[in-house]
């Protein structure tokens, strides 16, 4: 089997001196970084499948805005949360649509969505778990559906896979999310006899204006929870690359 595990890595997180405090947005920060995901085999990590630069603004009350470029199509994507709904917009994704029973044709230049929930995919996963998940996940332990593996985009009704997660929060390491998380397949809370199917960790803390943000966020996803893959992943993470 070629793939030993899949790694979502966010690195080089920096403030660039943009912590803010104003009446419109409240108190918060804007972070910049690079997010990528790649496969790790017995020969070491492969070249990243996808690599993006992003900016993330986080404000009090779980408000946030994430902007990044889709390096496949060169489009700019923006996602945000206003405390109630999630907004996403793809600039430059234009076309024509039929509206209403009368099928009135309307042309558009950009595409957008408003949703009640937000599911991070591929390169956004580590960003979401490290810096945005606290808006939805308030407990240290719990069950979450289908947040680890990406499903193929086929028209099958979503039958989510449940994952039990166990989080550790250390505000001295991460002001906005967990310092580490272990994921187990299924809903059972008994983790003594099981190996995690994925693990999230943070490192290299950066402190500014009272905020602690890790420079590196890492989500390692194993194909199956095997002892060998776990050992390899730990060695890989310890090596520091």
């Amino acid at each position: 089997m070629k793939m030993h595990f899949l790694i979502y890595l966010v690195s080089g997180l920096t403030f660039n001196g943009t912590a803010f405090s104003d009446p419109a947005r409240g108190k918060g920060i804007t972070l910049y970084g690079v997010s990528q995901h790649s496969y790790v085999t017995e020969d070491g990590p492969e070249a990243p499948d996808m690599k993006i630069e992003f900016s993330l603004t986080i404000a009090e009350g779980c408000l946030w805005r994430l902007t990044h470029t889709n390096n496949t199509y060169g489009q700019v994507l923006e996602h945000s949360y206003d405390g109630t709904n999630y907004y996403s917009i793809v600039r430059g994704a234009g076309g024509t649509v039929e509206l209403g029973i009368a099928k009135t044709l309307a042309s558009y230049k950009d595409s957008a969505t408003i949703r009640k929930s937000f599911r991070p995919r591929t390169i956004l996963k580590a960003i979401w778990w490290g810096l945005l998940s606290s808006c939805q996940i308030t407990n240290g332990n719990g069950t979450i559906n289908d947040f680890i593996f990406d499903r193929p985009p086929v028209a099958i009704p979503d039958i989510p896979d449940p994952y039990f997660y166990q989080q550790v929060s250390d505000r001295a390491v991460n002001s906005f999310g967990p310092s580490s998380t272990l994921f187990y397949s299924g809903e059972s809370t008994n983790v003594n006899e099981r190996l995690p199917i994925a693990m999230f960790s943070v490192s290299d803390v950066l402190t500014q204006d009272g905020f602690n943000v890790p420079r590196k966020l890492e989500l390692a996803v194993f194909r199956s929870g095997s002892v060998r893959q776990m050992a390899e992943a730990k060695n890989y993470m310890r090596s520091g690359r």
Partner: peptide, 17 residues
């Protein structure tokens, strides 16, 4: 809709859930 929501700049097809 708070200030952090992305601004629409031109005609946009919006799927509203």
């Amino acid at each position: 809709i708070k200030n952090l929501a992305p601004q629409l700049q031109r005609s946009t097809a919006i799927t509203d859930s």
